[in-house]
Amino acid sequence: MTDLGADPAGAGRGSVTVPLGAELNPGAPGTFVTTFTNNETTDAANVGVRLHGLPEGWKAEVAEKDGNLLGIVKPGDSARTTWLLTPPADAAGHHPGVAGDRHVRP
């Protein structure tokens, strides 16, 4: 898998947004949704999304098997991935600095 990289024209080729202030309870999985948007003028094929930057002890799983493999995303369209994000039991009052990124397979 390779990153889409920067667009020579300066616009982003694709973007992933993550929710701010997601409601999560220590020790229990909570729903966390990321959104990939194709900012290109052509299809983005074989798109996959992953999470990174989770604090130590946090766990993330895709809610549906292969739900982070988005296939083809048409220009201007968006696709969502639902994650189950579980903070450790002692994480009360902590909010993760979660980030998402996108990859495409040639």
Rank of each mutant, 00 (worst) to 15 (best):
G76L: 00
S15C: 06
S78H: 12
A45G: 09
G5T: 02
A22N: 00
T82R: 09
S15F: 07
T86L: 00
T37N: 12
R80D: 14
R80V: 03
G30T: 10
R80H: 06
H103G: 14
F32Y: 15
A92R: 01
F32R: 05
G97I: 04
G71L: 02
N38F: 02
P87I: 02
E23A: 15
M1Q: 10
A44K: 10
T17P: 04
L69S: 14
H94T: 13
K74L: 01
G48W: 10
G21H: 11
E40N: 04
A91D: 10
G67L: 08
M1A: 12
R50H: 03
V98D: 00
A99F: 07
N39F: 04
A22W: 00
A28L: 13
R13D: 06
N46K: 12
P26Q: 07
T42E: 15
R102V: 14
P26K: 10
D43G: 08
L24N: 02
A28I: 14
A92W: 01
G93T: 03
I72M: 13
A91H: 06
A9Q: 13
A79N: 08
D7R: 00
V104E: 15
P87C: 05
W58T: 00
A89P: 05
G5H: 04
P55I: 00
E23Q: 14
S78A: 15
G71V: 04
P55G: 11
T17K: 12
A28V: 12
G100A: 11
T81G: 03
V104L: 03
G67I: 03
G30Y: 11
A60M: 05
G12W: 08
S15A: 12
V16C: 05
N46A: 13
P75D: 13
T86G: 00
G97D: 11
R80Y: 07
H103A: 10
P96Y: 01
E64R: 15
A63I: 00
D90G: 11
P106T: 08
A63Y: 02
A60K: 08
G100R: 15
V33M: 00
N46F: 11
E23D: 15
N38H: 02
L54E: 12
D90A: 14
E23H: 14
A22T: 00
T42C: 07
P87Y: 04
I72Y: 09
N25K: 13
L20R: 14
L4A: 12
N68S: 05
P26M: 07
G10P: 07
V49D: 01
L84Y: 01
L20I: 05
D77G: 02
N46H: 14
L84H: 06
E56A: 13
N38M: 02
D43F: 08
R102D: 13
R102M: 14
A63V: 05
A9L: 09
R80M: 08
T42A: 15
A92Y: 01
H94N: 10
G21V: 03
G12H: 11
S15Y: 07
G21R: 14
A11C: 04
T2R: 15
V47M: 11
A45P: 09
L85S: 00
P19A: 09
G71R: 04
V73P: 13
G48V: 09
A60G: 06
G10T: 06
D43R: 12
N39M: 03
N25V: 03
A45K: 15
L69T: 04
D77F: 05
N68V: 01
P19W: 08
H103W: 11
G53K: 09
V104T: 15
K65R: 11
G30P: 09
E23K: 15
R102W: 11
M1S: 13
P55W: 03
